[in-house]
Amino acid sequence: MWTLAGREFKSRLLLGTARYPSPESLKDAIKKSNAEIVTVSLRRQVAGDGSKFWDFLRQMNVTILPNTAHCRGVEEAVATAQMAREIFKTDWVKLETIGDEYTLQPDPFALIEAAKILMSQGFEVFPYMTEDLIVAERLMAAGCKILMPWGAPIGSGQGLSNPQALRTLRARLPGATLILDAGIGTPSHAVQAMEMGFDAVLLNSAVALAEDPPKMAEAFSKAVEAGRLGFEAGLLTPRPFAEPSTPVVGTPFWKKA
Protein backbone atom coordinates (compact mmCIF):
# COMPACT_ATOMS: atom_id res chain seq x y z
CA MET A 1 0.00 0.00 0.00
CA TRP A 2 1.11 3.56 -0.61
CA THR A 3 -0.47 6.91 0.12
CA LEU A 4 -1.38 9.43 -2.54
CA ALA A 5 -3.01 12.68 -1.49
CA GLY A 6 -4.09 11.13 1.79
CA ARG A 7 -5.61 8.04 0.20
CA GLU A 8 -4.26 4.50 0.16
CA PHE A 9 -3.66 2.57 -3.04
CA LYS A 10 -2.18 -0.81 -3.89
CA SER A 11 -1.15 -0.13 -7.47
CA ARG A 12 1.53 2.35 -8.45
CA LEU A 13 0.41 2.37 -12.06
CA LEU A 14 -1.94 5.10 -13.28
CA LEU A 15 -3.53 4.52 -16.66
CA GLY A 16 -4.80 6.88 -19.35
CA THR A 17 -8.10 6.05 -21.05
CA ALA A 18 -7.52 7.45 -24.55
CA ARG A 19 -6.77 5.85 -27.93
CA TYR A 20 -7.97 2.29 -27.18
CA PRO A 21 -9.32 0.35 -30.16
CA SER A 22 -12.66 -0.26 -28.37
CA PRO A 23 -14.43 0.32 -25.04
CA GLU A 24 -14.07 -3.42 -24.28
CA SER A 25 -10.35 -3.20 -24.81
CA LEU A 26 -10.14 -0.20 -22.44
CA LYS A 27 -12.20 -2.04 -19.85
CA ASP A 28 -10.01 -5.16 -20.02
CA ALA A 29 -6.82 -3.08 -20.00
CA ILE A 30 -7.90 -1.25 -16.81
CA LYS A 31 -8.62 -4.60 -15.16
CA LYS A 32 -5.37 -6.26 -16.26
CA SER A 33 -3.29 -3.22 -15.31
CA ASN A 34 -4.62 -3.37 -11.73
CA ALA A 35 -4.64 0.44 -11.96
CA GLU A 36 -6.92 2.07 -9.40
CA ILE A 37 -6.56 5.57 -10.85
CA VAL A 38 -7.35 6.53 -14.45
CA THR A 39 -7.02 9.84 -16.23
CA VAL A 40 -9.84 11.41 -18.23
CA SER A 41 -10.35 14.69 -20.03
CA LEU A 42 -13.14 17.12 -20.82
CA ARG A 43 -14.20 17.91 -24.36
CA ARG A 44 -16.92 19.91 -26.05
CA GLN A 45 -20.20 18.12 -25.71
CA VAL A 46 -22.75 17.80 -28.48
CA ALA A 47 -26.27 18.03 -27.04
CA GLY A 48 -28.12 14.75 -26.91
CA ASP A 49 -24.89 12.81 -27.30
CA GLY A 50 -25.51 11.26 -23.90
CA SER A 51 -23.26 10.40 -21.04
CA LYS A 52 -21.90 7.06 -22.26
CA PHE A 53 -18.29 7.52 -21.24
CA TRP A 54 -19.26 8.94 -17.84
CA ASP A 55 -21.50 5.94 -17.21
CA PHE A 56 -18.68 3.64 -18.30
CA LEU A 57 -16.29 5.25 -15.81
CA ARG A 58 -18.75 5.00 -12.97
CA GLN A 59 -19.22 1.28 -13.48
CA MET A 60 -15.42 0.70 -13.57
CA ASN A 61 -15.23 1.81 -9.94
CA VAL A 62 -11.85 3.53 -10.29
CA THR A 63 -10.54 6.82 -8.92
CA ILE A 64 -10.70 9.54 -11.53
CA LEU A 65 -7.92 11.98 -12.22
CA PRO A 66 -9.25 14.58 -14.67
CA ASN A 67 -6.71 16.39 -16.81
CA THR A 68 -6.64 19.79 -18.47
CA ALA A 69 -5.15 18.30 -21.65
CA HIS A 70 -4.13 20.76 -24.35
CA CYS A 71 -4.99 23.84 -22.32
CA ARG A 72 -2.68 26.60 -23.44
CA GLY A 73 -2.96 29.37 -20.87
CA VAL A 74 -3.59 29.89 -17.18
CA GLU A 75 -7.20 31.01 -17.63
CA GLU A 76 -8.14 28.00 -19.81
CA ALA A 77 -6.46 25.51 -17.49
CA VAL A 78 -8.07 26.96 -14.35
CA ALA A 79 -11.55 27.03 -15.94
CA THR A 80 -11.15 23.45 -17.22
CA ALA A 81 -10.04 22.26 -13.77
CA GLN A 82 -13.08 23.90 -12.19
CA MET A 83 -15.37 22.30 -14.77
CA ALA A 84 -13.80 18.92 -14.07
CA ARG A 85 -14.46 19.38 -10.36
CA GLU A 86 -18.06 20.26 -11.16
CA ILE A 87 -18.59 17.01 -13.09
CA PHE A 88 -16.40 14.47 -11.29
CA LYS A 89 -16.86 15.86 -7.77
CA THR A 90 -13.13 15.56 -7.14
CA ASP A 91 -10.48 18.07 -6.12
CA TRP A 92 -7.84 16.14 -8.02
CA VAL A 93 -6.60 17.58 -11.28
CA LYS A 94 -3.72 16.72 -13.57
CA LEU A 95 -2.68 20.18 -14.62
CA GLU A 96 -1.45 20.49 -18.20
CA THR A 97 -0.46 23.81 -19.71
CA ILE A 98 0.94 23.14 -23.16
CA GLY A 99 3.67 25.51 -24.31
CA ASP A 100 4.77 23.98 -27.60
CA GLU A 101 2.64 22.25 -30.19
CA TYR A 102 5.40 20.03 -31.64
CA THR A 103 6.67 18.55 -28.37
CA LEU A 104 3.57 19.27 -26.25
CA GLN A 105 6.11 20.51 -23.73
CA PRO A 106 4.46 22.04 -20.68
CA ASP A 107 4.78 25.80 -20.28
CA PRO A 108 6.37 26.02 -16.81
CA PHE A 109 5.42 29.67 -16.23
CA ALA A 110 1.72 29.13 -16.90
CA LEU A 111 1.92 25.86 -14.95
CA ILE A 112 3.22 27.49 -11.77
CA GLU A 113 0.73 30.35 -12.00
CA ALA A 114 -2.23 28.04 -12.61
CA ALA A 115 -1.06 25.69 -9.83
CA LYS A 116 -0.99 28.60 -7.35
CA ILE A 117 -4.55 29.60 -8.25
CA LEU A 118 -5.89 26.06 -8.07
CA MET A 119 -4.11 25.23 -4.80
CA SER A 120 -5.69 28.35 -3.27
CA GLN A 121 -9.09 27.03 -4.39
CA GLY A 122 -8.59 23.71 -2.61
CA PHE A 123 -7.53 21.57 -5.55
CA GLU A 124 -5.05 18.71 -5.24
CA VAL A 125 -2.89 19.66 -8.19
CA PHE A 126 -0.88 17.04 -10.09
CA PRO A 127 1.24 19.29 -12.32
CA TYR A 128 2.56 17.81 -15.58
CA MET A 129 6.05 19.28 -15.88
CA THR A 130 9.42 18.82 -17.54
CA GLU A 131 12.26 17.34 -15.50
CA ASP A 132 13.45 20.81 -14.39
CA LEU A 133 14.43 20.90 -10.71
CA ILE A 134 13.70 24.59 -10.18
CA VAL A 135 10.24 24.31 -11.71
CA ALA A 136 9.66 21.40 -9.33
CA GLU A 137 10.78 23.49 -6.37
CA ARG A 138 8.56 26.42 -7.38
CA LEU A 139 5.59 24.10 -7.70
CA MET A 140 6.29 22.72 -4.23
CA ALA A 141 6.60 26.26 -2.90
CA ALA A 142 3.13 26.86 -4.39
CA GLY A 143 1.86 23.99 -2.25
CA CYS A 144 2.05 21.04 -4.66
CA LYS A 145 3.06 17.79 -2.95
CA ILE A 146 2.70 15.67 -6.07
CA LEU A 147 4.74 16.29 -9.22
CA MET A 148 4.47 14.65 -12.62
CA PRO A 149 7.70 15.08 -14.55
CA TRP A 150 7.76 13.79 -18.11
CA GLY A 151 9.95 10.95 -19.26
CA ALA A 152 9.71 12.13 -22.87
CA PRO A 153 7.07 13.95 -24.96
CA ILE A 154 3.49 12.64 -24.70
CA GLY A 155 2.85 9.60 -26.87
CA SER A 156 6.45 9.46 -28.12
CA GLY A 157 7.40 6.18 -26.46
CA GLN A 158 10.99 7.37 -26.13
CA GLY A 159 11.27 6.36 -22.50
CA LEU A 160 13.33 8.35 -20.02
CA SER A 161 15.18 10.87 -22.19
CA ASN A 162 17.04 12.55 -19.35
CA PRO A 163 17.56 9.93 -16.64
CA GLN A 164 20.20 11.94 -14.81
CA ALA A 165 17.83 14.89 -14.30
CA LEU A 166 15.10 12.52 -13.13
CA ARG A 167 17.50 10.96 -10.61
CA THR A 168 18.37 14.47 -9.44
CA LEU A 169 14.69 15.27 -8.91
CA ARG A 170 14.31 12.18 -6.76
CA ALA A 171 17.46 12.90 -4.78
CA ARG A 172 16.72 16.61 -4.22
CA LEU A 173 13.02 16.24 -3.46
CA PRO A 174 12.76 13.27 -1.10
CA GLY A 175 9.47 14.55 0.32
CA ALA A 176 7.66 14.94 -3.00
CA THR A 177 5.43 12.31 -4.50
CA LEU A 178 6.92 11.85 -7.95
CA ILE A 179 4.86 10.26 -10.70
CA LEU A 180 6.66 9.75 -13.98
CA ASP A 181 4.21 10.78 -16.67
CA ALA A 182 4.43 10.56 -20.45
CA GLY A 183 6.91 9.15 -22.91
CA ILE A 184 6.91 5.59 -21.63
CA GLY A 185 6.98 3.09 -24.49
CA THR A 186 7.95 -0.25 -22.98
CA PRO A 187 7.62 -2.05 -19.65
CA SER A 188 11.38 -1.70 -19.14
CA HIS A 189 10.98 2.11 -19.19
CA ALA A 190 8.51 1.79 -16.31
CA VAL A 191 10.91 -0.48 -14.43
CA GLN A 192 13.65 2.10 -14.90
CA ALA A 193 11.53 4.89 -13.39
CA MET A 194 10.42 2.76 -10.47
CA GLU A 195 13.98 1.60 -9.75
CA MET A 196 14.98 5.27 -9.51
CA GLY A 197 12.53 5.64 -6.68
CA PHE A 198 9.64 7.28 -8.48
CA ASP A 199 6.47 6.73 -6.49
CA ALA A 200 4.34 5.79 -9.49
CA VAL A 201 4.09 5.83 -13.26
CA LEU A 202 1.34 7.18 -15.51
CA LEU A 203 1.07 6.00 -19.09
CA ASN A 204 -1.46 5.65 -21.86
CA SER A 205 -0.29 5.15 -25.46
CA ALA A 206 2.10 2.27 -24.73
CA VAL A 207 -0.90 0.21 -23.60
CA ALA A 208 -3.66 1.67 -25.78
CA LEU A 209 -1.69 1.34 -29.04
CA ALA A 210 -0.26 -2.12 -28.31
CA GLU A 211 -1.47 -4.98 -30.50
CA ASP A 212 -3.02 -6.48 -27.38
CA PRO A 213 -3.75 -3.66 -24.90
CA PRO A 214 -4.95 -5.86 -22.00
CA LYS A 215 -1.83 -8.02 -22.24
CA MET A 216 0.41 -4.95 -22.36
CA ALA A 217 -1.48 -3.56 -19.35
CA GLU A 218 -0.60 -6.73 -17.46
CA ALA A 219 3.04 -6.39 -18.53
CA PHE A 220 3.15 -2.84 -17.17
CA SER A 221 1.47 -3.89 -13.95
CA LYS A 222 4.24 -6.42 -13.37
CA ALA A 223 6.96 -4.01 -14.49
CA VAL A 224 5.87 -1.31 -12.06
CA GLU A 225 5.69 -3.82 -9.24
CA ALA A 226 9.09 -5.33 -10.08
CA GLY A 227 10.74 -1.92 -10.35
CA ARG A 228 9.34 -0.82 -7.01
CA LEU A 229 10.38 -4.03 -5.26
CA GLY A 230 13.87 -3.60 -6.70
CA PHE A 231 14.06 -0.04 -5.41
CA GLU A 232 12.84 -1.02 -1.95
CA ALA A 233 15.24 -3.97 -1.79
CA GLY A 234 18.25 -1.73 -2.50
CA LEU A 235 20.01 -1.96 -5.85
CA LEU A 236 23.56 -3.09 -6.36
CA THR A 237 25.83 -0.15 -7.13
CA PRO A 238 27.57 -0.71 -10.48
CA ARG A 239 31.39 -0.93 -10.33
CA PRO A 240 34.01 -0.91 -13.04
CA PHE A 241 35.66 -4.20 -12.05
CA ALA A 242 34.65 -7.81 -11.45
CA GLU A 243 33.90 -9.14 -8.01
CA PRO A 244 33.54 -12.92 -7.80
CA SER A 245 30.12 -14.06 -6.71
CA THR A 246 31.35 -17.55 -5.88
CA PRO A 247 33.61 -17.60 -2.79
CA VAL A 248 37.28 -17.88 -3.77
CA VAL A 249 38.19 -19.82 -0.63
CA GLY A 250 38.57 -23.49 -1.51
CA THR A 251 38.78 -22.97 -5.26
CA PRO A 252 39.46 -26.46 -6.78
CA PHE A 253 42.96 -27.27 -8.08
CA TRP A 254 44.27 -23.93 -6.86
CA LYS A 255 47.86 -23.76 -5.59
CA LYS A 256 50.38 -21.07 -4.84
CA ALA A 257 52.26 -19.99 -7.94
Binding site: G16, T17, A18, R19, Y20, L26, T39, V40, S41, L42, R43, R44, Q45, A47, D49, S51, F53, W54, L57, P66, N67, A69, A79, T80, Q82, M83, E86, I87, F88, I154, G155, A182, N204, S205
Partner: peptide, 27 residues
Protein backbone atom coordinates in the same frame (compact mmCIF):
# COMPACT_ATOMS: atom_id res chain seq x y z
CA UNK B 1 -16.73 27.99 -14.87
CA UNK B 2 -20.29 28.63 -13.71
CA UNK B 3 -21.43 26.06 -11.14
CA UNK B 4 -24.81 24.42 -11.70
CA UNK B 5 -26.24 26.24 -8.67
CA UNK B 6 -25.55 29.63 -10.25
CA UNK B 7 -26.60 28.96 -13.84
CA UNK B 8 -30.22 29.95 -13.17
CA UNK B 9 -29.24 33.41 -11.96
CA UNK B 10 -26.46 34.07 -14.47
CA UNK B 11 -27.67 36.48 -17.13
CA UNK B 12 -26.34 36.25 -20.65
CA UNK B 13 -25.86 38.92 -23.26
CA UNK B 14 -25.03 39.23 -26.95
CA UNK B 15 -21.73 37.65 -28.02
CA UNK B 16 -21.19 35.76 -24.79
CA UNK B 17 -19.00 32.69 -25.19
CA UNK B 18 -20.29 29.48 -23.68
CA UNK B 19 -18.38 26.22 -23.40
CA UNK B 20 -20.20 23.00 -22.54
CA UNK B 21 -17.84 20.14 -21.72
CA UNK B 22 -18.30 16.51 -20.79
CA UNK B 23 -16.04 13.56 -19.88
CA UNK B 24 -13.93 12.12 -22.64
CA UNK B 25 -11.10 9.64 -22.84
CA UNK B 26 -7.82 11.21 -21.84
CA UNK B 27 -4.21 10.50 -20.97
Amino acid sequence: CIPRSKQGTTAIKDFDEIEILSPMQGG
